[in-house]
Protein backbone atom coordinates (compact mmCIF):
# COMPACT_ATOMS: atom_id res chain seq x y z
CA UNK A 1 0.00 0.00 0.00
CA UNK A 2 1.46 3.31 -1.06
CA UNK A 3 1.79 6.35 1.17
CA UNK A 4 0.61 9.55 -0.50
CA UNK A 5 1.23 13.06 0.80
CA UNK A 6 -1.99 15.08 0.79
CA UNK A 7 -0.87 18.74 0.62
CA UNK A 8 -3.45 19.52 3.30
CA UNK A 9 -3.42 16.47 5.61
CA UNK A 10 0.07 14.99 5.23
CA UNK A 11 0.99 11.38 4.48
CA UNK A 12 -1.95 8.95 4.32
CA UNK A 13 -2.56 5.44 3.02
CA UNK A 14 -3.46 5.19 -0.63
CA UNK A 15 -6.87 3.70 0.25
CA UNK A 16 -7.92 7.21 1.28
CA UNK A 17 -7.33 8.52 -2.23
CA UNK A 18 -9.14 8.39 -5.52
CA UNK A 19 -7.30 8.68 -8.81
CA UNK A 20 -8.52 11.60 -10.86
CA UNK A 21 -6.58 11.14 -14.07
CA UNK A 22 -3.47 12.52 -15.71
CA UNK A 23 -2.74 16.15 -14.94
CA UNK A 24 -2.80 18.67 -17.76
CA UNK A 25 -5.64 17.09 -19.74
CA UNK A 26 -7.26 20.36 -20.80
CA UNK A 27 -10.93 20.22 -21.70
CA UNK A 28 -11.45 21.31 -25.31
CA UNK A 29 -14.34 23.75 -25.60
CA UNK A 30 -16.09 25.74 -28.24
CA UNK A 31 -18.18 25.13 -31.31
CA UNK A 32 -15.62 23.37 -33.46
CA UNK A 33 -14.05 20.66 -31.38
CA UNK A 34 -13.24 17.81 -33.75
CA UNK A 35 -14.28 14.27 -32.85
CA UNK A 36 -10.63 13.20 -32.76
CA UNK A 37 -9.70 16.04 -30.45
CA UNK A 38 -12.58 15.23 -28.13
CA UNK A 39 -11.78 11.50 -28.15
CA UNK A 40 -8.22 12.39 -27.25
CA UNK A 41 -9.47 14.35 -24.25
CA UNK A 42 -11.82 11.57 -23.16
CA UNK A 43 -9.83 8.42 -23.68
CA UNK A 44 -6.22 8.76 -24.79
CA UNK A 45 -3.56 8.86 -22.08
CA UNK A 46 0.23 8.79 -22.14
CA UNK A 47 0.34 6.17 -19.36
CA UNK A 48 4.08 6.63 -18.89
CA UNK A 49 6.44 4.11 -17.35
CA UNK A 50 8.32 6.47 -15.11
CA UNK A 51 7.55 10.00 -13.90
CA UNK A 52 3.86 10.79 -14.11
CA UNK A 53 1.90 13.94 -13.15
CA UNK A 54 -1.45 12.90 -11.79
CA UNK A 55 -4.59 14.35 -10.25
CA UNK A 56 -5.66 12.65 -7.04
CA UNK A 57 -8.48 13.32 -4.64
CA UNK A 58 -8.03 12.84 -0.91
CA UNK A 59 -11.46 11.49 -0.12
CA UNK A 60 -11.37 12.27 3.57
CA UNK A 61 -10.78 16.01 3.05
CA UNK A 62 -12.28 16.28 -0.42
CA UNK A 63 -9.36 18.15 -1.98
CA UNK A 64 -8.04 17.43 -5.45
CA UNK A 65 -4.30 17.93 -5.89
CA UNK A 66 -1.46 17.30 -8.29
CA UNK A 67 1.02 14.57 -7.46
CA UNK A 68 4.17 13.72 -9.36
CA UNK A 69 5.24 10.16 -8.84
CA UNK A 70 7.10 7.46 -10.66
CA UNK A 71 4.63 4.92 -12.02
CA UNK A 72 7.34 2.30 -12.09
CA UNK A 73 9.14 2.71 -8.75
CA UNK A 74 6.20 4.37 -6.96
CA UNK A 75 8.50 7.05 -5.57
CA UNK A 76 6.52 10.24 -4.92
CA UNK A 77 8.47 13.31 -6.02
CA UNK A 78 6.00 16.08 -5.26
CA UNK A 79 2.41 16.89 -4.35
CA UNK A 80 0.87 20.33 -4.49
CA UNK A 81 -2.58 21.88 -4.25
CA UNK A 82 -4.55 22.27 -7.44
CA UNK A 83 -4.74 26.03 -7.96
CA UNK A 84 -8.07 25.87 -9.79
CA UNK A 85 -9.16 28.81 -11.92
CA UNK A 86 -8.52 31.92 -9.87
CA UNK A 87 -10.40 35.05 -10.99
Amino acid sequence: MQLFPCPFCGPRDETEFHYGGEAGNVRPEGANVSADFWANYLWFRANPTGPSREIWMHMTCGEFFVMTRDASTHVVADSSPNSGREP
Binding site: R27, M57, F64, G84, R85, P87
Partner: peptide, 10 residues
Protein backbone atom coordinates in the same frame (compact mmCIF):
# COMPACT_ATOMS: atom_id res chain seq x y z
CA UNK B 1 -16.26 18.82 -6.08
CA UNK B 2 -14.00 17.86 -8.94
CA UNK B 3 -15.60 20.36 -11.31
CA UNK B 4 -15.74 23.03 -8.61
CA UNK B 5 -12.03 22.71 -7.90
CA UNK B 6 -11.09 22.32 -11.54
CA UNK B 7 -12.79 25.30 -13.16
CA UNK B 8 -14.47 27.51 -10.58
CA UNK B 9 -13.28 29.93 -7.97
CA UNK B 10 -13.27 27.86 -4.84
Amino acid sequence: EEWRQDRFDR
